Amino acid sequence: MTITGHCHCAAVTYSLVQDTAPTVYACHCTTCQRWSGSAFALHALLPEGALSITGPLAEYSHEHGGHVSNQRCCAVCHTRLFNTTTAAPGLLVLRAGTLTGAADLVPAAHIWTRSKQTWLAVPEGVPSWPQSPTPEQFASALSKR
């Protein structure tokens, strides 16, 4: 199936082909809270070449925790769409809120919960970690959805 998404103004659109909707997770770190302007950010991990993108992108790079993160956003409305990071070579981190039908996505895991807003409750039975899990733990949690 073809899955689509776009920025706020729709100047940038993207698509990817997969059998099911992407598995998403919530990151509650303070960096994601600042980037999103919200209590957490909803992400999906995808292979780096998974998106077919149309429209003008702008890039912002910064160092975070000893790794370089390359953020991509719409060059018109500045909606952040995805990033790549040296912490996860070969993967991209898609901002799941930009997906068409994002309201139907339920996080398969929650990370950096030590920074989560106190009023937010992580549902029972959903894997969560106070910081970043090991790659093996994270892959296991995301593969169960």
Results as ranks from 00 to 15, higher is better:
residue 42 L to C: 06
residue 61 S to M: 12
residue 33 Q to W: 07
residue 27 C to S: 11
residue 70 N to W: 03
residue 96 A to P: 11
residue 48 E to L: 13
residue 123 P to F: 10
residue 93 V to G: 04
residue 102 A to T: 00
residue 50 A to L: 10
residue 130 P to G: 14
residue 40 F to E: 00
residue 58 A to I: 06
residue 44 A to P: 06
residue 47 P to F: 06
residue 34 R to F: 06
residue 87 A to P: 13
residue 29 C to A: 06
residue 124 E to M: 15
residue 81 L to R: 10
residue 107 P to H: 03
residue 123 P to G: 12
residue 138 F to W: 11
residue 95 R to K: 14
residue 104 D to G: 15
residue 128 S to Q: 14
residue 76 V to D: 07
residue 113 T to I: 09
residue 38 S to Q: 09
residue 130 P to Q: 14
residue 69 S to G: 00
residue 35 W to Q: 10
residue 50 A to E: 05
residue 129 W to E: 07
residue 65 G to T: 00
residue 55 G to E: 07
residue 25 Y to W: 08
residue 52 S to V: 15
residue 98 T to S: 13
residue 141 A to H: 06
residue 136 E to W: 02
residue 45 L to V: 10
residue 121 A to L: 11
residue 30 T to C: 02
residue 100 T to K: 11
residue 48 E to K: 12
residue 131 Q to N: 12
residue 26 A to I: 00
residue 108 A to Q: 04
residue 86 T to V: 08
residue 103 A to I: 09
residue 67 H to I: 03
residue 85 T to R: 01
residue 35 W to R: 02
residue 88 A to T: 15
residue 92 L to C: 02
residue 41 A to H: 05
residue 97 G to Y: 06
residue 27 C to Y: 02
residue 89 P to W: 10
residue 102 A to L: 01
residue 30 T to L: 14
residue 124 E to V: 15
residue 100 T to N: 11
residue 73 C to E: 09
residue 55 G to D: 09
residue 132 S to N: 12
residue 24 V to P: 01
residue 89 P to Y: 06
residue 99 L to G: 05
residue 54 T to S: 14
residue 137 Q to P: 01
residue 57 L to P: 02
residue 63 E to G: 09
residue 109 A to M: 01
residue 120 L to Y: 08
residue 88 A to D: 13
residue 42 L to F: 07
residue 97 G to I: 01
residue 128 S to H: 12
residue 66 G to T: 01
residue 30 T to R: 15
residue 68 V to W: 04
residue 96 A to T: 09
residue 126 V to I: 08
residue 88 A to F: 15
residue 125 G to R: 10
residue 36 S to F: 10
residue 28 H to E: 04
residue 127 P to E: 13
residue 41 A to S: 15
residue 83 N to W: 07
residue 37 G to M: 05
residue 118 T to W: 03
residue 66 G to K: 04
residue 60 Y to W: 14
